[in-house]
Amino acid sequence: MPIIVNLDRILAERKMKSKELAEIIGITTANLSILKSGKAKAVRFSTLEAICKALDCQPADILEYVED
């Protein structure tokens, strides 16, 4: 998929663990793992908003378009 999820990089920069982020934004660690691995088919605006709020970043910092 040409959309890359850079959550791992942002998490490392913020020195935050996946489990911690999952708890803050109110999703399961399994779902966060699906999102990080790029297996997710779609992201809700509410989830994106919660991630941006928790990590103090912009949607573009998390999602990136790379041509195949």
């Binding site: 999703i27 699906i34 999102l35 997710a40 088919k41 779609a42 992201v43 809700r44 989830t47």
Partner: peptide, 8 residues
């Protein structure tokens, strides 16, 4: 359903 399950 699969699509819904993979919507985070």
């Amino acid at each position: 359903q699969e699509e819904n399950d993979l919507t985070i």
